[in-house]
Design a protein around this nucleic acid. Sequence first.
RNA 1: GGAGAAUUAGCUCAGCUGGUUAGAGCGCUCGCCUCACACGCGAGAGGUCAACGGUUCGAGUCCGCUAUUCUCCACCA
Length: 873
Amino acid sequence: MRELPKVYDPASVEKKVYDMWQKGGYFKGVIDPEKKPFSIVMPPPNVTGQLHMGHALDATLQDILIRYKRMQGYAALWLPGTDHAGIATQIKVEEELRKNEGLTRYDLGREKFLDRVWDWKNKYGDRIVEQQKVLGASCDWDRSSFTMDETRAKSVRETFCELYEKGLIYKGSRIINWCPKCRTALSDAEVEYKDMPGFFWHIRYPIEDSDEEFIIATTRPETMLGDSGVAVHPDDERYAHLVGKNAILPLVGRKLPIVADDYVELGFGTGAVKMTPCHDPNDYEVGLRHGLEQILVIDEDAKIINGGKYNGMDRYEARKAIVADLEEQGYLVKVEPYNHNVGCCYRCGTVVEPLTSPQWFVKMKPLAEAAIEVVKDGRIKFVPERFTKTYMNWMENVHDWCISRQLWWGHRIPAWYCDDCGEITVSRTDACECAHCGSRNIRQEEDVLDTWFSSALWPFSTMGWPEKTPELDYWYPTSVMVTGYDIIFFWVARMIFSGMEQMKEEPFRTVFIHGLVRDSQGRKMSKSLGNGIDPLEMAEKYGADALRFNLITGNSPGNDMRFYVEKCEAMRNFCNKIWNASRFVMMNLTVGDCRLPEKLETEDKWILSKLNQVIKEVCDNMDSFELGIAAGKIYDFIWDSYCDWYIELTKPRLNGEDAAAKESAQRVLLYVLTEILKLLHPFMPFITEEIWQALPHEGEALMIAEYPRFRQELCFPEDEVNFEMVMEAIKAVRARRAEMNVPPSRKSHLIIVTGKAKAFAEGEKFICKLAYASGIHVTDKLPESTEGMVSVITDNARMFMPMAELVDLEKERARMEKELANAKKQLDGQNAKLANENFVSRAPEHVVNLEREKKAKLEALIENLEDSLKKLG
RNA sequence: GGAGAAUUAGCUCAGCUGGUUAGAGCGCUCGCCUCACACGCGAGAGGUCAACGGUUCGAGUCCGCUAUUCUCCACCA
């Protein structure tokens, strides 16, 4: 047995233990028909990513689940990987290029630029993987995937082609969200709405051949250049006679058909709305209904086109110029401040420009059907359940998904345009000729796919689909998907319909949703605020185990949590507690046998019974994804039951002369400690493994040991009750002594009057040690006189300590009287409850019995107190 | 506009399907360097569980309503 330091030092342990696991090959998912499969695919972090607290939480939850199941004998697979993260990565490399060489991607050209991105990926892409290892992630690293590697590229192409062939992917000119800074289209999910201050400009729109006019308000006057109509509500009597006529667009002079459409809300504003089909999603729809002209006036750089004298101006510059001109020409009626929601790019924050543009789309309605069904009928469950509603609400209202991106970094869309016949050829292999006319005059689509398109396939692409692999056969559908609620629309929803469409089977059985890790003030951790706490720094300082425990205790599924460094400290202290308890066990160990002894003492049965309960509670909570509760139970058991009580209880035997008793104590200590380490291992893998390795053990590693199970033969309810009577007495004596400021060094004799003499007699050595008694006398008769004695009363015993000099008769009387009054009050309540006919007849029997017992106890207490008061003289 | 969450001790949070005197960590008070651990041990103080109403023998827990805070979705030009 080697000497262990007094303070646990995670830094010297974690790396070593992790390497040992890896060398042992314990992370590998092995297909075993004898075992039940359990699989998790990891949400792939971005290759550009640095591990943040969110990742740490995500990884910890998954690692706990996978280690738990692995120890329970499942064939566990945790499949890791990384995401190419289209925009994020491209921006990162472009920035570097600009900073270091003053070049843009256009200077390099597509191919050379992509070479650079791959270089970058190869250089830095594994950084986050290494960081996950620091946390103890037990992934099958050999099966690691990248969303743009060869296999995944195949999955993407296959999916794209299948969907295209089914008519579920189409190309068309639609209104989309355009980010002028990233210069790409975005999906609806990638637009974030922010409340921004702005203005309402009220503009006069004259009506052709009439003296009448509309006053039309807009927050974006520059879009008027693209106006092609004016809409009013069909029931709006003020304007009914104008429908069918034309309004005249100020500054431009264009005729604008006046149409009636119930998109216009009665009673809001002036009731007349300018229609700019090319730059507003609602106007676009209205325009389609009424055949309004589509006039694109803002281009991909957010500059004006088709706008006469304003051409070339930036959209905000044009706004100013147009407002000035309107004012000058008398069209501007008034300006009022107005706050409104503005769509912004989720990557760069730039205000998104809605514009019509030819893009590729996934037709969502048909796909959504199966995705709704599979959640509705419970094949996929959300934990916590409330997120089902979030999901359903979104899925039932989906719009077609714009999947083309005008980027270079990503899966290039496998479509070729024919210069001769103009048709599109979509192909699984790179096409050399047009599938329609055979022309070799074809060009591949320049656009790439939305990153989320490849992520959507993750649960099966990582297992090698479209090949029919044994992995898919064995581990698909996966067991659990662990992810944050912020990503339900981006990812979870898309994995579900993709899985249903491509695999005809749900991608996972359970979606386990967690919340966000916020700072101590409840703010989101972000780069711009600079309030992020680095998980690696925490792991280095307090240990990965402490960090993990911090992240999962004291919060419930789906809820946000605040991160406190102080809590890391507390958890580090817990590690130290376990460490020292283990040191104690090892220091006292003379045998290498970790089986339980034949003969068990009452205190042994007590701790074993407790352990058994904890095992059951932990497993129950794990199975219902209440990891925080499970961890809390283990914490309490270790600290309170094992350390504060059981270890103390073994000391008399360990320090005694009886060799057999000594050995039995050692063996129970070791047995329970080993069970504790197993229980705790999924949560704190490093320290538990390190200690386990140092203890006598069977098997190679704790991480592949069998998880504790509830064992009927180790339930000792009677001994438990008996022993807890003794514990209760000890606590009561300690409390009384503390109240009177008696130092532990001052021992006192103890007279115990009880009907349970046996239990107390057996507990003598503990009472002496832990209640600082010099000796005890157990009897069923009250002493003749209790004068000069301090009395302590518990449910099962009345105890007296002869400490005459400490007893202030008056104080003692007052204390007892207070206690008596309190007990009487409680008894009154109890009597009232039991006198209630309704309660007795309607409450379940065990509840009524409980109340009766309580009443009996109170009565006994009152009797004892009255008696003691009398004896006090 | 729609949906959801939160409101429990000074702080941060648990408390699952209603059933003893509502728990933990940190902080605080008192006493202890007790032969594993001062990153510790023992003992405490501190809560009309946001307000109101309801269901029930019984409500922190279920229902309704109100208030405050937060989040998501939709987006009235």
